[in-house]
Design a protein around this nucleic acid. Structure first.
Lengths: 174, 174
DNA sequence: ACCTGAACACCGTTCAAGT
DNA sequence: ACCTGAACACCGTTCAAGT
């Protein structure tokens, strides 16, 4: 029996696991989601997950990649809007990751895979803001924007308060 | 035998546990520190800790209170310096909490005690910055400062890069 | 009041065994 | 190649028992 008889089936099963993990991670958070729950939701046993992912952290990375890709795919219409709208959009779009931001930071030291995703994420974020910033301050300014976006994700505020913060930030920083 | 024969001894034992927990939490992080390690460092068994604290989260709160009190006690000489110096000082002083910032955010949903400490912390931080800010923007501006401080704690940068970010922030926001 | 040994329920992960 | 049942080492927490 050949090794790769149904490569399609493997990808599909993997997707089912990622989809289940995504829903549970986003809704309940990483720590509160036991691998056995994810496995049950995907119709397998807990240890089967290890045939598709080396560990729970790599499964989180797969989920983060999906979430980020989804957010970016919806970003295009924003390309022409002012920076404040882009940041507002980013905060709303990334709010699905809200429960996971702290987990990513917390597990960075323990998991090279998560550390790597985190670095890549900030590179993408940096690239998106930097082009809109005065070249002289682009470096520190882009960091400030990233910190505020993360802060707004971690400390959910009302819509108007959020706008106030972003408007002030963009007004002063650009 | 009276119930409170040696109230002093109880406080001392409690302190030993907090001191051990503080060192381990700061050095290794909350998740990586098993209660049994703390207990061993304090010369007791793991379950004995539960006679002094209702759970691991409350022990973390006790540690956070110590760290914050220490930082504030060193803050006085800063009172007359410019805002940028104060923020720089805050980041350096709170860097002992670096490993715990994400834990506090992550466990806020699960632990009312941690949530409460977190709220109090931001009230203190807000009060310290707000007086230095133009009253019109004080609310959003103080949030931006808090977000940048947290961002610098979570994403350690070089000393000069850090200064660049803080200087730009203070220059623009005040 | 204070502390312990033993147990409980749960976790991520490993492994030998099946197909 | 893919999946499982059973086990492992570990965790926070509880509890009956000692002093």
């Amino acid at each position: 029996m050949p090794a790769n008889r149904r490569p399609r089936a493997r990808a599909e099963k993997r997707d089912e696991i990622v989809t289940a993990a995504r829903r549970l991670f986003v809704d309940d958070g990483y720590d509160a989601t036991a691998l056995s729950k994810i496995a049950a939701a995907a119709g397998v046993t807990a240890n089967t997950v290890y045939w598709y992912f080396p560990d729970k952290d790599h499964l989180l990375v797969a989920v983060l990649e999906e979430l980020l890709a989804d957010a970016l795919s919806r970003y295009e219409p924003m390309a022409q809007r002012p920076l404040a709208d882009k940041i507002m959009f980013a905060v709303q779009e990334l709010s699905a990751m809200r429960n996971l931001v702290d987990t990513v930071h917390a597990r960075r030291a323990a998991s090279p895979a998560i550390d790597q995703w985190h670095t890549g994420f900030h590179e993408v974020a940096d690239a998106l803001t930097r082009s809109e910033l005065p070249p002289d301050d682009a470096e520190p300014a882009s960091h400030i924007i990233a910190f505020v976006v993360e802060g707004l994700l971690t400390h959910p505020a009302g819509e108007t308060e959020q706008r106030e913060i972003i408007d002030l930030l963009v007004d002063r920083i650009t």
